[in-house]
Simulated assay, not measured.
Amino acid sequence: MTAGLKTVIYPVKDIAKAKALFTALLGVEPYVDEPYYVGFKDAGQDVGLDPSGHSKGLTGPVPYWHVDDIKETLSGLLAAGAETLQDVQEVGGGRLIASVRDAEGNQVGLIQDTAA
């Protein structure tokens, strides 16, 4: 089961310029502002800027579906023909992420947060 699309990650080459653009667009300051990642929260949406995204193979924004069980969801996607791009990985605070590419070449991200 998903909680919907709540996160979009953009690969960026110039994080300072991208941060300025998204600050102007969203009208909020980032809640995470690090050299390796800048994150914004606005209207229930998480928008992330990843300066390493291109080197990870990202060619454009990647939507992340928030799921209850990332391993089960990933297994289902792989059984349906998806290809693993990033296996399940903990990225801090118990948050797990993974991503796949579908048969059309689209990237699909998954996020599982720890229960609060």
Rank of each mutant, 00 (worst) to 15 (best):
G105D: 06
K71V: 04
E72Q: 07
L58A: 08
E34A: 12
R101L: 11
A116V: 03
A79D: 15
P51C: 11
W65Y: 02
E34M: 04
V108W: 11
D46Y: 10
L110H: 08
E29K: 02
D102N: 02
F40G: 10
Q86E: 09
G57M: 07
A43Y: 11
A82S: 15
G105P: 00
Q89E: 15
L77K: 04
A115G: 09
Y10F: 13
T2N: 15
A79Q: 10
D69Q: 05
K56C: 08
H66E: 15
D46N: 06
V12Q: 11
M1R: 03
D14C: 03
V12S: 10
Q112G: 15
L5T: 12
Q107H: 00
V88C: 06
Y37A: 09
K19Q: 05
A43H: 09
V12G: 09
I9T: 10
V8D: 14
A20K: 05
I15E: 12
A98C: 09
T84G: 12
Q107W: 00
Y31E: 13
E104F: 12
L78F: 13
L77N: 08
S99P: 04
G60P: 01
A103T: 05
P63Q: 10
M1P: 07
A82Q: 04
G94W: 02
T23G: 11
Y10K: 04
F22Q: 06
G76L: 01
D68M: 09
A82N: 10
A80W: 02
I111L: 09
L77E: 13
G27R: 06
F40W: 03
V12K: 02
Q112K: 03
G92S: 14
D102Y: 04
G53F: 10
S52I: 00
G92V: 01
Y31M: 11
D46F: 05
A82D: 14
